[in-house]
Design a protein around this nucleic acid. Structure first.
Lengths: 202, 202, 202, 202
DNA sequence: TATGAATGAGGATTCATTCAT
DNA sequence: AATGAATGAATCCTCATTCAT
């Protein structure tokens, strides 16, 4: 987020418009399924002007992914070693669920990237992400050793939280079709609370 | 949609080769990201010959989706009202996890379709799928009423099983990057068993 | 010239038409100055059809260069160690001059490539070409040692023959503008004969 | 076309920078192969600013050609009717060879223009250039008539001098590849001296 | 069944040039 | 004198699909 390049107002506005349009399109149609025409029209720019701001289609996609990765792990980083273990984990899950509600396109963009084999962020996965997860696994094992939560495989617990929460954004169409209604947040939140609490209680 | 057309052996073989190649490609690159050339080469056919078997690119994709939907819900259908409730649910989850292990490409194909808004199978979702889920929800509510499992929202329980299990196929790259190893099945299976059992125990 | 790929009649015809059109265009406008549209129109093909025969613009250019290199050095190879030295060299120059008359586009294509730094055939220059020239230099030095021709730097003698003859193709416009007439061959031939003979006579 | 416009120091500096950058680029990549971006960057100017100094890409190219033509024929003009004929001609050739060594980009720019059919300077060729060559031809014929040099076709003699000398600049890459070394001047100079002297000696 | 040939409709990107300031 | 912003017209190339045989 901390762009070093100084930007004029008009640049900031147009870049933001392009990223917004790109997020819309890429999260719905994937990289190949999205055309620059789509993005340009949605951003209210001509195609060459769009390419004046971003060198290429890939540059837009990459910028979106980078912005995403920058914040995607914030909820996990926010888990506090010193807090109450069960509440920390439950809170983490809730924050992830809120992200599914508030940033579903970002979630789907990420999901699409991973589904296709993470061509752009493979390094990130085995680098930053793995390091962070490993660090949190250490914390969780500490909580287990201290008898504060029931024994559990930390990595798979984290996978569970990711999948349970992101599902509501990524499979949104299915969720709404099956439920027959659009708002799932309250029920999902309550459900995940009980699901995790039952498992973690020491 | 079981094709009624009688097929010669060579026809059956070529159609199968095309579907196999299509599954490979579509599950990895998405619909737009896949080209007929790729499929034709992988299937060992010329492009026009490929189109002799399937009218269009979309026809291949649709055939794959239909074949998938045909079996995708089998594990859920297999849940036995008369069986032991907790074991039935746990077994369902295990079968889904096995499908993630054994048919990851099918899982990713389905995920891609849903992520993009389910353009081809929207009807299925709010039709067959919803009906089946609602039917199982009735069964689950019966189990709850009978005190055989703890109270739980049946729909969200089912979402949980879907997401927890499909995650291992759909986010396979991430799972392996974070774990630092390729085989996740045993640990995931044990983890899901305890997770669901803790929640369902009456 | 010995294409391994078996070609149907129509393929051979179209590939030939493309190469002819490409030679016309590239030799006049250079690589960048030539468009696929030009070549396609001159060859009587649609642009995609043109690309069915040659993968890319560069492939056409490369094919032309390769075909050219294949025959470009034939006159030099034809110099006979056992022949009369002065006549061999004079004959070589005459053949080169005939090539300038008969294949001016090929000469200009080659000149353009060299002028731009030989991006496609740098290897050829320091490989095959240099080897051949060095071999002929040995022959020429032999002739000098035997007192059959006057002492001369073989490499620069060869450069002289190249430049003197190719000039008539490459600077054709200038030659005709200065002469005020179109046919230069007879006079140039006589001139080069006397020029070289005067220098080589032992 | 000597620009009458008075120029500030900064104007003169920027115009010079643009011409220098343009010469670099055009002589290497040709007209179409050169982009304004390249020139602008090499000149240290923004593209619009560059176009403030020169109305268009073509204007830069034309300015370069004009500047070139202005001096290109100086060595020929310098041939002195009253000097020693053989020495005058030999000296002319040497001066041209020095230009190939000292101004190879200019030589290549000129060669490119001629190769492409002299679209910008066709008039010059059949006008100024032809007139000058014809004038020198008269001089040479005078020398021949006076028995000061051997009989020779003056036009083709001049073509020979042009081609023999410019070759070292225009085919520089090939020359260096074949020689296996970078400096060719001394040997070429000696070679051309003997070549021309042998032919001209009365 | 099978393939060589052909194409219309894009689609990403480049680039000389213009506009506004 | 200078630049950020914008664009129309290419330009190379892709691709699903059709045609002819």
């Amino acid at each position: 987020m901390s762009d070093a390049k100084p930007q004029t107002r008009i640049q900031a506005k147009n870049r933001a418009a392009i990223l917004a349009a790109g997020l819309d399109a890429f999260s719905q149609f994937g990289f190949r399924g999205t055309t620059l025409d789509q993005i340009a029209e949605a951003a209210g720019l001509s195609k060459p002007n769009l390419l004046y701001y971003f060198r290429s289609k890939d540059a837009i996609y990459t910028a979106l992914l980078e912005r995403l990765l920058d914040t995607w792990l914030d909820p996990m980083r926010a888990m506090d070693d010193a807090g109450d273990p069960v509440e920390e984990i439950i809170t983490y899950a809730r924050r992830k669920l809120e992200m599914s509600r508030d940033f579903p396109r970002e979630s789907r963009l990420f999901a699409t990237e991973i589904l296709q084999g993470a061509p752009h962020i493979a390094d990130h996965l085995s680098g930053d992400l793995r390091a962070l997860v490993d660090a949190k696994a250490v914390v969780i094992r500490g909580w287990i050793a201290a008898g504060k939560i029931a024994p559990v495989d930390p990595h798979h617990l984290i996978f569970s939280i990711w999948s349970l929460t992101q599902h509501y954004a990524d499979f949104d169409v299915q969720v709404r079709a099956v439920l027959g209604k659009d708002d799932w947040f309250e029920d999902a939140d309550a459900h995940l609370d009980t699901l995790l609490r039952a498992r973690l209680r020491p």
